[in-house]
Computed example of a mutant assay.
Amino acid sequence: MSTVLETPEVAPTSGRRRPLILVNDLTKTFGNGVRAVSDVNLTLYAGETLGIVGESGCGKSTTAKMMLRLLEPDSGEVLFDGADIHRLRGRELKALRRRLQVVPQNPQTSLNPRLTIAESIAFNMSAHGFSRAERARRIPDLLDRVGLDPSYGERHPHQMSGGQLQRAAIARALATDPEVVICDEAVSALDKSVQAQVLNLLADLQRELGIAYVFISHDLAVVEHISDRVAVMYLGRVVEEGAAEEIWNDPRHPYTATLLSSTPGPDRSRIVLDGELPNPAAPPSGCGFRTRCPLAADVCAQEWPTLTVRTPLHHASCVHQDPVPLMRPA
């Protein structure tokens, strides 16, 4: 029996909800001169899923690490419920860690091979002040909630499949009752059928618990299915953002159209780009996508366009105002 990827219910419009995370003008340059993230602005509302998509090296994981305070930005800020997380210390920082959790790409490396699954979950809970009795009571319930028999808590990571391990990693993230979970390529290492199961699980948990997700992936089709809104990144910048349905049906940036053309769809022709991803340490002048863009014009070499409003919830950083055609022959 094949596994069907369910389309999650559409969340309420952002105007009615509380901004939980605000990313303002975030920039990060590494010691080798690579500007991994440039002036990124994002908003995550309570209870929604924000998808971040782009090629490897586009800056999406670096952005996530700064949102988790695993990296310090050169400039800009990340506000969690109004507080700048990079200024928090001591108890305030510990409280943030409890409210903000992560599901990493590869649970085989993120779960300690010497600990059982229950011990890994208990370790996270212990770090945030849960008593031994609370841990013993909650861990079986957490495993059951993610679709694992509680007996799996006694297994070590090598005794479980990739899908089971990712479910265990989700249980570990849920153990502190977080408000936000950042999923960094959380299904990219799984088979397609298992991907669908995990995505459906995440959607179910969101409906039950009201969690907000930041869902990072290079696969726009996966992001579109699970996300309320999508931000598309290229060469360290957000080049398009909007409601998932608008991004999918009406892309306004050539790079977004290129990503879409590589996903299955009726009457959709593949757009083949010339050239390679530019060197982030020496990016081209103007729009960083212009050296690969089939619509590039002289004006594109002057400066990187700012995000321009196309519809109230849809913005793109491209000088071309018309919708991008997807039906371009390869």
Results as ranks from 00 to 15, higher is better:
Ala196Glu: 03
Arg167Asp: 06
Asp219Ala: 10
Asp191Phe: 10
Leu190Tyr: 09
Leu174Glu: 04
Gln195Phe: 05
Gly162Trp: 15
Gln195Trp: 10
Ala175Phe: 01
Ala212Asn: 02
Ala175Asp: 01
Val198Gly: 05
Ile170His: 08
Arg207Ile: 00
Glu208Ala: 12
Pro157Phe: 12
Thr176Glu: 02
Asp177His: 14
Leu209Asn: 06
Gln166Val: 08
Ala196Asp: 09
Val180Cys: 05
Leu165Pro: 07
Ile170Pro: 03
Asp191Trp: 12
His156Phe: 15
Ala168Arg: 06
Pro157Ile: 01
Leu209Thr: 04
Arg155Leu: 14
Arg207Thr: 06
Ser161Val: 15
Gln166Gly: 04
His218Ala: 09
Ala203Ile: 08
Val214Cys: 06
Arg207Leu: 04
Ala189Gly: 04
Asn200Asp: 11
Ala169Gln: 06
Val198Glu: 06
Ile170Asp: 05
Leu201Gly: 00
His218Asp: 03
Ala212Gly: 12
Val181Thr: 11
Phe215Gly: 02
Tyr152Phe: 15
Ala175Gly: 09
Gly153Arg: 13
Leu165Cys: 10
Ala212Thr: 04
Val198Lys: 07
Gln164His: 11
Ala173Gly: 08
Ala171Phe: 13
Asp191Gly: 10
Arg155Glu: 11
Ala212Cys: 05
Gly163Ile: 11
Ile211Glu: 02
Gln166Ile: 03
Leu201Phe: 11
Gln206Leu: 04
Ala173Ile: 07
Asn200His: 05
Ala169Trp: 05
Val198Cys: 06
Tyr152Glu: 11
Asn200Ala: 00
Ala189Pro: 02
Gly153Tyr: 14
